[in-house]
């Protein structure tokens, strides 16, 4: 599993703490439901301890902006 994380197609995933999550939702004035979603069983999250309701920060290597961050809310099913 460890080497899968480094696959060129998979960007770094990071779990946000409760505090960071609140700040993010406040900054954009949204609720958790408005965020794009990621399944809890997603292979890229295998090593992160996430559950429904968490927010994952994704550090994408962007072709236009160098690096960009994207957020996804974790959902089941």
């Amino acid at each position: 599993m460890a080497e899968k994380k480094q696959h060129i197609l998979v960007p770094a995933h990071k779990k946000l703490s409760e505090k960071e999550k609140e700040e993010l939702l406040k900054k954009y004035n949204i609720t958790l439901k408005d965020l794009p979603k990621i399944l809890a069983k997603d292979p890229a999250l295998a090593e992160l301890d996430v559950k429904e309701g968490d927010v994952v920060k994704i550090l994408r290597k962007s072709r236009t902006a160098g690096e960009s961050s994207y957020y996804r809310g974790v959902v089941n099913g």
Binding site: K4, H7, L9, V10, P11, H13, I38, L39, D42, P43, A44, L45, I58, R60, Y70, R72
Partner: peptide, 14 residues
């Protein structure tokens, strides 16, 4: 297959 094995972000990239 990429979505299954590597996840949704990899699928987007692909």
């Amino acid at each position: 297959e990429i979505a299954d094995v590597l996840g949704i972000e990899a699928a987007r990239e692909a």
